[in-house]
Design a protein around this nucleic acid. Structure first.
Lengths: 222, 222
DNA sequence: GCCTATTATCACAGTTATGTCACAACTATC
DNA sequence: GATAGTTGTGACATAACTGTGATAATAGGC
């Protein structure tokens, strides 16, 4: 799938240069010649995957555009800043961008940064999030209410199995089969203990794993 | 950010002259009065951004210093050579420098060349910095909390591979494949040992490499 | 409210994964 | 070919995880 990138710069030559390189790298591009146009275009094309904003632009400068978009979107933004020393100290307002590239820059660098940022943003999004719970399958990490939680392998597999079967009642036997293996002969107590440990570690989200008396357990976010 | 330049020349007058001009141009300078001192100073100050080496120096001549530094660093080097015709043909040994300036030269020329070289080198500067850790891909150097850290090749490759895959869990098998090669059959203990050595050398930043029990390791700056 | 079946909790010992160390083999350099 | 640095490996230590039975707590039926 080709990603689409909005390039906002008032210098036509620069815009075309950047657009050319990005298109050669396989991206679709949309150009804006001032801040207002950039904002308006992004509003009309919510499928834009990344924005490159020059700081110095008429009507609205890059920071203002960045700020306005950040109010409602987490789309990745790269700022093109002047090379002077002021860029070192970012004021409170001058935040919210994902990358900063100082002019002058080589087009190769720009493309490399864009590639990296796109990858970071879109490729690695295997994340489950519901209620207080967040599971990142790439990092094999779990957080509850933004607090990292360390799970053992069995606990992690239990949790992900529950998530895959949200709202379904799962018997201890099913769990023994899926988590421990078909040929494993564990006791119900084994399951109980691991469920217990998992609930403990999940803190407030522990209540998501409910006991269904006589049948097993059920994962449900209330 | 001000760049730092090391000037190595045995003639005090020349050293001061060059240093003055460079400082007026906004650089920090460090002076060495012979080759050995130059090499030692560069070792102690891995933040030096460019070296100017006179060829004719006591203890170690400029080429020897250049050669020694090139073994482990890609830092830009300007050689000051005598004006005789021999300099036209560079022998195999007389390589590795980025610029050659023949004496006598005008200070203006020197500053211009320095500016150009600095720009050329660091415009595409590839530096990774996060938390206590700083990796300079150009120099192939690593510092932790501003303290230079010496890594072996395997350790360096491990670290950079982790950085490229920040926050991702990487299995021992993946590491063996990427760092040691597809057809390599190492044991898990090999990986563990190198991870261990890397963590040790990274001092406080060693905790950035986390063990994910049952899966491998993960690089993450907390 | 009592009884019983079911589930929760706990401590402990067995198991497994990882950390650490020493050493010999290897490499590059002089 | 001597030297210092690097590397891979196995042995062992350490830490983390796991399963189990004993016991406590609980829910639901009566």
């Amino acid at each position: 799938m080709n990603r689409t990138i909005l390039i906002a710069d008032d210098e036509t030559r620069m815009r075309i240069l950047v657009a050319d390189f990005l298109e050669q790298a396989g991206y679709n591009t949309i150009e804006a010649k001032n801040g207002e146009e950039a904002l308006s275009l992004y509003g009309k094309h919510p499928d834009i995957d990344l924005l490159i904003l020059d700081v110095m632009m008429p009507l609205m400068n890059g920071w203002e555009v960045c700020h306005a978009i950040r109010d409602y979107s987490k789309v990745p933004i790269i700022m093109l800043t002047a090379k002077n020393t002021e860029t070192d100290e970012l004021t409170g307002f001058q935040k919210g961008a994902d990358e900063y590239i100082t002019k002058p820059f080589s087009p190769m660098i720009l493309v490399a940064r864009v590639n990296a940022l796109i990858k970071r943003t879109y490729m690695d999004k295997q994340v489950y999030s519901k209620g207080l719970l967040l599971v990142d399958y790439n990092r094999i990490s779990v957080t509850v209410d933004h607090v990292p939680v360390e799970l053992s392998q069995t606990e992690y597999r239990l949790l992900t199995f529950f998530i895959e079967n949200e709202q379904q009642v799962i018997s201890r036997e099913q769990l023994l089969n899926h988590i421990w293996g078909m040929d494993y002969f564990g006791t119900d107590r084994t399951v109980d203990t691991h469920i217990n440990r998992l609930r403990m570690k999940l803190l407030a989200a522990g209540t998501y794993i409910q006991t269904v008396r006589g049948h097993g357990y059920k994962y449900e976010v209330k």
